[in-house]
């Protein structure tokens, strides 16, 4: 039953069909599946299945990544409002685009993906100063700072990830906070994340969600 729901739900997501995906969820609710089961037994496993597919070279495209994150976060938010008891958050991370970068899509996909997996996200928006990333991460005890950069000069800028790394070093926070980057330049040069001082990079928003979840879980152990 659960397997069939996950399969139908992911088929709708792969087909970028939001109405059909919501129909699958509503049908499951009508059949007596609880909101808690929808989130923990359908949405999270479905997202994990999509992550696994992508890591095995499943040829998903940007529209599918966007819809997967959008629908999952939308359904999760709706279901949580119906929970008997509020769910425990796995942690909170900080995300934003680097200085000079106005592109919002990548962080929106990552955020949607994380929220559907019970990880809270503080979105600092676009054109974020390095100090702001670190100050906010310290304030909320975030184990991860995620920086999205869609252009080469914003990815490699001295006011971007490079400066965030310097501040983490200056404040002795390198063991506590991981630095994850994403965006087009990192797809064209897979070693660029090292050049800018990041701990990791991800090829797309869904894989970034998987990477960040791993760091969040590690920080709890």
């Amino acid at each position: 039953m659960q397997h069939k729901i996950i399969q139908d739900y992911n088929e709708a997501v792969y087909d970028t069909d939001r109405d059909k995906a919501l129909e699958v969820i509503n049908r499951a609710l009508a059949d007596g599946i609880t909101p808690e089961q929808i989130v923990f037994d359908v949405i999270i496993p479905a997202m994990e299945a999509m992550m696994a597919s992508i890591s095995k070279d499943f040829d998903a495209n940007l529209a599918q990544h966007f819809m997967a994150a959008q629908i999952a976060s939308e359904v999760t938010e709706e279901m949580i409002s119906r929970f008997q008891n509020p769910p425990e958050s796995l942690g909170t991370i900080v995300i934003g685009t680097s200085v000079g970068d106005m592109h919002t899509l990548g962080k929106r996909i990552v955020s949607g993906c994380l929220r559907s997996m019970m990880i809270d996200v503080v979105d600092l928006g676009v054109n974020v100063k390095p100090e702001t990333f670190v100050d906010k991460a310290v304030e909320i005890n975030a184990p991860v700072i995620a920086i999205s950069s869609m252009m080469m000069h914003t990815a490699t800028s001295e006011n971007g990830c490079l400066r965030v790394r310097e501040i983490l070093k200056e404040r002795g926070l390198e063991d506590k906070i991981k630095l994850v980057v994403g965006g087009a330049p990192f797809r064209w040069d897979n070693d660029l994340y090292k050049t800018v001082g990041a701990d990791a990079w991800a090829d797309n928003g869904i894989s970034a969600g998987e990477m960040i979840k791993k760091f969040v879980l590690e920080s709890r152990s």
Binding site: G100, D101, M102, H103, N127, M151, M152, H153, T154, S157
Partner: peptide, 12 residues
């Protein structure tokens, strides 16, 4: 439009 030193301008 946002201009920067080392790369293309962005729509703000």
């Amino acid at each position: 439009i946002t201009f920067s030193k080392g790369g293309p301008p962005n729509v703000e």
